[in-house]
Simulated scan of single mutants.
Amino acid sequence: MLTRPKIPEIDIVRAIAIIAVVIIHGTANATLLPVGTGSQAFFFILNRACLFTVPVFIWISGVVLFYNYYDRWDPSTSFAFWTKRLRRILIPYLLWSVFYYVYNQYMFHGKVTLNAWYLFKLVLSGNASYHLYYMLIIVQFYILFPFVITAVRKFPLLNKALIPLGICLQAAAYSVNHWVHPLPEYSSLFTSYSALFAFGAFTGIHYAAMSTWIARYRSWILSAMVLGGFAFVGMLLLHQYGWIAVENTWFELALLLYCMTAALIFVQLGQNTLHKDSSFSKALTALGAASFGIYLAHPALLTLWDRLKPAKERILLYDLHTVTSFVIGLLGTWLLVRLYAHIMKKGKVSVK
């Protein structure tokens, strides 16, 4: 059975993406400062510039799944795949959904009321906390993966058409939601990210060739990333000030270009970082490896820290609080994840 070598730069990409996640959540309140202030503009730009993060994580999932399974996939192993993958994500999802259901009630209301039906609806919609919808998207892609990879291996034309098919599916879902009728929980549907997943799948299948292609056209890809990023953030900023009125589709197109090119640039950045074999590269690799735990736990620390939030009128103090939110959200949660891993490892050694 063929097994491809690991792609360590993916952990660097994960590290960049999880840093962006914490920036988004850590600066969310600061984007609500009075419009026109320098602080609001700075944190707004930083917050929106990091919105590549969920699409990039979806892209990573496509890369890893198709890179690891494409050459050795057997449709008869579909049930084993579902069991293994869904167990890894569904159990944490359910546990953390219950945790945030209780935790957020206590933190925001000072009391906890248990309503099993309401909790069930929160779990189904991914709304037990503001960040958990991502896990529902991943579950959907895990469910679909055996069907997609089987079809792609059986029909070579699908392999070549993965990216346009993913874009068309996402465009169709967007068109229905935007122009025909709103789709329930649209942002949590796999169709909202099918372009990035398909792009990741194609990259995973042809990873060596894609790496060479990225290196050859790096300047063009970087230019497209900068163009997409500036267009997306710039339109949002100008729209916030009421200086332009832009149809939402232009935001979606700019964001798609930004995210697809950012994923490729981050891959090469990861490769270059690992090539130096420095303490920084090792730290980023470790951060990327811990990204799932950081993703799950960081909102709890941010909510706790926000209890000390100063008044918005005290701009400098509020800015300091916002910067500290990022530090606590990232490094504080990373420390907790490492502590948990150490305890679990020690427990396994003791059992043996």
Score class of each variant (00 low, 15 high):
residue 79 F to R: 12
residue 45 I to M: 03
residue 192 S to G: 05
residue 75 P to C: 07
residue 115 N to I: 08
residue 256 L to D: 09
residue 14 R to A: 00
residue 163 I to W: 04
residue 188 S to I: 12
residue 94 L to H: 06
residue 304 L to F: 15
residue 76 S to R: 10
residue 217 Y to S: 12
residue 161 A to S: 11
residue 73 W to I: 03
residue 17 A to W: 01
residue 105 Q to N: 02
residue 177 N to T: 13
residue 149 I to Y: 01
residue 291 S to P: 04
residue 218 R to F: 07
residue 125 S to A: 10
residue 49 A to K: 02
residue 178 H to G: 14
residue 105 Q to E: 05
residue 252 E to W: 13
residue 346 K to P: 07
residue 60 I to W: 00
residue 243 W to R: 13
residue 202 F to M: 01
residue 253 L to A: 15
residue 196 L to I: 05
residue 91 I to H: 00
residue 203 T to G: 02
residue 143 I to W: 07
residue 349 V to S: 10
residue 309 K to S: 15
residue 136 L to P: 01
residue 122 L to I: 10
residue 151 A to I: 01
residue 174 Y to M: 04
residue 237 L to F: 15
residue 49 A to W: 02
residue 125 S to P: 06
residue 162 L to R: 03
residue 34 P to F: 12
residue 236 L to E: 11
residue 242 G to F: 12
residue 3 T to N: 05
residue 117 W to F: 14
residue 149 I to C: 02
residue 222 L to A: 06
residue 104 N to T: 11
residue 28 A to G: 01
residue 96 W to M: 04
residue 149 I to A: 02
residue 298 H to L: 04
residue 328 I to E: 09
residue 296 L to I: 14
residue 202 F to Y: 07
residue 296 L to C: 05
residue 165 L to G: 04
residue 307 R to Q: 15
residue 313 E to R: 10
residue 259 C to T: 13
residue 283 A to G: 08
residue 59 W to D: 03
residue 92 P to T: 11
residue 316 L to P: 06
residue 166 G to W: 05
residue 99 F to N: 09
residue 351 V to G: 11
residue 37 T to P: 00
residue 39 S to E: 06
residue 227 L to G: 09
residue 212 T to P: 00
residue 115 N to R: 08
residue 195 A to M: 10
residue 292 F to A: 09
residue 259 C to E: 12
residue 304 L to C: 14
residue 343 I to Y: 14
residue 135 M to D: 11
residue 53 T to I: 02
residue 187 S to F: 12
residue 162 L to K: 07
residue 25 H to C: 02
residue 212 T to A: 04
residue 128 A to R: 08
residue 6 K to G: 08
residue 224 A to E: 04
residue 12 I to C: 11
residue 44 F to E: 01
residue 281 S to I: 01
residue 82 W to I: 12
residue 240 Q to N: 14
residue 160 K to T: 03
residue 348 K to R: 14
residue 66 F to R: 02
residue 99 F to S: 05
residue 10 I to H: 06
residue 96 W to F: 03
residue 210 M to D: 03
residue 138 I to N: 13
residue 231 A to V: 07
residue 141 F to T: 05
residue 208 A to N: 13
residue 92 P to Y: 08
residue 247 E to A: 10
residue 333 T to G: 07
residue 136 L to I: 09
residue 69 Y to I: 01
residue 89 I to Y: 00
residue 65 L to P: 01
residue 116 A to H: 05
residue 324 T to Q: 09
residue 46 L to H: 01
residue 166 G to M: 07
residue 168 C to P: 01
residue 309 K to Q: 14
residue 81 F to T: 14
residue 142 Y to W: 09
